[in-house]
Design a protein around this nucleic acid. Structure first.
Lengths: 103, 103
DNA sequence: GTATTTTTGCCAAATAACGTCAAGACAAGA
DNA sequence: TCTTGTCTTGACGTTATTTGGCAAAAATAC
């Protein structure tokens, strides 16, 4: 199960030639856990993204986007109807915030 | 906390002038639980959507879309960056399925 | 071959989501 | 006002899901 987020971490890390061990240490988690994050079977905590962005020299906002995108994808992954659903959300973002819907 | 899904249920139900009690009974859940589903502080189970669509005479697929949209919205609700995230998902849906990313 | 890094399976602990109960709010009608 | 029925809410115990770490296995490097 690959994720945009985990995949990006891996690529960035390899560019820096940094072992997982180092990153795990910085996050104060087990290497196994970090490994799982890269592989996409554990999710990084939002707070950890900050540290990751810094360690890997990558824009924090962009990293958060990937992290969120993965969560969203998981919801629609098994839906033939995925793009329609995304459209509904996009169309209703404003109304959601007003707590009124146009649907 | 309003949801597209819960709101739709409420509207449809009111059109039919049906009490929550009846729907709750059909779903074999407490009225309180159903009430929360309409209000958006409990989530219907996917299997329940089928029954709801039937009871309320509404297209099942559309209902599922709203239900999924709510889940997605929850993820990006507190993000200034919401549309960007949706775009990333949309752009990567195909690649996700190939387990390769373009990001 | 040995050492290092990465990956996996498993489990207990933590977290989140759930459904129900009981009580309260609200509206309509007597 | 009192009653009846509907809707809503908070609290609480239960269930389900997610989590992190350990230990051991794979894979890779030396």
């Amino acid at each position: 199960m690959t994720t945009l987020f985990g995949n990006k971490l891996k690529v960035l890390r390899e560019v820096k030639q940094m072992p997982q061990r180092k990153i795990a240490a910085a996050l104060e988690i087990d290497t196994a856990t970090y490994c799982k994050i890269e592989k996409g079977d554990r999710r990084a905590k939002r707070e950890q993204i900050e540290m990751l962005a810094e360690l890997l020299d990558f824009d924090k906002k962009k990293l958060i986007r990937l992290w969120s995108a993965d969560k969203i994808y998981e919801i629609i992954a098994n839906d033939d109807d995925a793009s329609n659903i995304l459209n509904i959300v996009a169309e209703n973002i404003v109304e959601y915030k007003r707590k009124i819907s146009k649907v």
